[in-house]
Each structure stands twice: as structure tokens, then as C-alpha cells.
């Protein structure tokens, strides 16, 4: 039983990270209809920035905050310069742009910081916390769980209760009407990218102490996050976050209970993506998008 609880907490902890990444995917998908394949690489790049700041002697938490701010601004620039010119382009063109963005960011990270795997410090104290007899959990696992929970709650409050959050939701729902109620839609699209990159940076610094830091670190979380987003519904922020958590728990359980499970975790994620697309393409909480051709 304690073993199960331990796996559950570990699963929720990594699930929280996938939930954040899934939310970042949903933010961009809702407003543009495109899945940002480079989301994971952007998070890795952000994590490298945090790593560099720490190397210069900056304490970790200020480094994380600065990284989030830099990522926010960087993504806005990226959206303006690289993505915006293709806003009206064909879907395949946009996919090509995202693949290009993925490869560029990946290679740039490799060129700047090389491909050597680096340890990344945890934002929480080392060691573990004893929750009950026989059950002690690493402090980082719990801290990450609390942090992602806080980020998800903050994002929810932002979108639900603030005027800017409302304007962002409006721009995603109906661009033309948004303009007619005075919303600068192009600014909202850029802000959406900034927010997605900002919370992606948090996901990156939370996962790096577990997986270690290298330019290839972003792919697996992106696949798990995508599986989570599709499971919950890529049009539903709540569904996507929940889906991320579910995928995290599933991953932990399969690694723990299925022989050699740890070897084919990513396969499970891909199978999950396929089954959702086959059985319920809209996901658990998503709306069915009908497109007239």
C-alpha cells in the first residue's frame, strides 16, 4: 500500500509537469488552432538559461523568476518574427514551421551549451520528507507537486477572474468579435505565446533535477503532455491539465508494476494518443470541432 502511495505521489508530481506543458499547448492551440511542437524545446532552452544564471552565482529561485520573465519576452518575439508571418498559411506549412522551430531551438541549445548531460539543482532542499511510517518522498518530488499545483491554480484564477484573462479567452473564441469589443487580438496572440513559454519554463526547471539537463530533455515531456492534452481534450484547459496528471500517474504505475514498463513508457504515451484519437477524438472534456470543407 505504501509502495502504491509512493508511486501515486511520484506520478502526480511528474503529472503536474505534464499538466503545465499540456496547458501551454492548449493556450496556443485554442487561439491559433496549431499544436506548438517546439513547446518542449522552448522549455529546455529556458531551463538552460536558468542553469547559466545559476552558474554565474545567482540563487536558484531568483534565477527561475528571471528565466520565466526572459522566456515570456522571448516567446513574444518568436511569435512575432517566426510564427506570425505564417498565420494564414496552410496547416502543413505551419507544421513545417513548428518542426523547423523545434530543430532550430534544439540545435541552438546544443551549440551554446553542448550535448553533455548536466545536473540541475533542485529548487528544494535535498533529502526526503517522511509522510508516514515506511513512506518517505523526496523533497523535490513534493516541492514540484506543490509548485505545479500553484501554477495551475494561478493560471486558472488569471483566466477566470481577470480582465486580461477574459480578453485572452475571447480572442481564442472569436477573433472578429474580440476586435469589435475593443480587444487588440494580435497582442493577445503574442501574450498567449509569452504565457505558454513562461509556464513551460517552470515545467523545465521542475523536471530537470529529475531527468538531468541536456538538449534532448524536452521530447519525452512533450509527448506525455500531448498525450495528456489529447486525453483531456485539447480545447479544454481544465481537461488538458487533468489529462496531464492522469498520464503522469499512468507512467509511474506502469514503470512500477509492469515488468520492463520503464522501458516502454513513451510507447504507452503514443498508444494513448492513438487510442484517444480513435475512440474519442475530442478528449474527455474537449468540444467536438466540426469543420466544413
Amino acid at each position: 500500500m505504501t509502495f502504491f502511495l509512493e508511486q501515486l505521489i511520484i506520478g502526480l508530481s511528474s503529472g503536474g509537469i505534464y499538466a503545465i506543458m499540456a496547458l501551454a499547448l492548449v493556450m496556443i492551440y485554442k487561439s491559433t488552432g496549431h499544436v506548438n511542437l517546439a513547446q518542449g524545446e522552448m522549455a529546455v532552452f529556458s531551463t538552460f538559461i536558468a542553469w547559466t544564471l545559476v552558474q554565474t552565482g545567482m540563487p536558484l529561485w531568483p534565477a527561475i523568476l528571471l528565466t520565466v520573465a526572459v522566456s515570456f519576452v522571448g516567446a513574444i518575439v518568436l511569435e512575432r518574427v517566426v510564427v506570425r508571418p505564417f498565420a494564414e498559411a496552410d496547416d502543413l506549412v505551419v507544421v513545417a514551421v513548428f518542426v523547423g522551430l523545434f530543430l532550430s531551438i534544439h540545435s541552438l541549445a546544443g551549440a551554446i551549451w553542448n550535448y553533455e548531460v548536466k545536473p540541475f539543482p533542485s529548487a528544494f532542499s535535498d533529502g526526503s520528507v517522511s509522510l508516514m511510517v515506511d513512506l518517505s518522498i523526496r523533497t523535490h518530488t513534493l516541492g514540484s507537486l506543490v509548485t505545479t499545483g500553484a501554477v495551475l491554480t494561478a493560471v486558472w484564477i488569471f483566466f477566470r477572474y481577470t480582465q486580461l484573462g477574459l480578453a485572452l479567452r475571447a480572442a481564442a473564441d472569436n477573433r472578429e468579435s474580440s476586435r469589435l469589443v475593443g480587444i487588440n487580438v494580435s497582442l493577445m496572440l503574442a501574450l498567449g505565446w509569452g504565457l505558454a513559454a513562461g509556464i513551460g519554463a517552470v515545467a523545465g526547471v521542475m523536471i530537470a533535477p529529475v531527468t538531468f539537463l541536456d538538449p534532448g530533455m524536452g521530447l519525452a515531456p512533450l509527448i506525455f503532455a500531448l498525450a495528456g492534452a489529447l486525453l483531456g481534450g485539447i480545447t479544454s484547459p481544465f481537461g488538458a491539465a487533468l489529462g496531464g496528471l492522469i498520464v503522469g500517474v499512468l507512467e509511474a504505475m506502469i514503470s512500477a508494476y509492469v515488468p520492463y514498463g520503464i522501458e516502454f513508457r513513451e510507447l504507452i504515451a503514443l498508444m494513448l494518443i492513438l487510442s484517444v484519437l480513435l475512440v474519442r477524438p475530442a478528449g474527455l472534456f474537449g468540444e467536438i470541432v466540426a469543420r466544413r470543407v
Binding site: 477574459l166 480578453a167 469589443v181 475593443g182 480587444i183
Partner: peptide
């Protein structure tokens, strides 16, 4: 929310 949007400006 539709009404809140009207009142934004």
C-alpha cells in the same frame, strides 16, 4: 463573460 467583454472598454 460575453457581457463582461462588452464592458471591457
Amino acid at each position: 463573460d460575453n457581457l463582461r467583454l462588452g464592458a471591457l472598454i
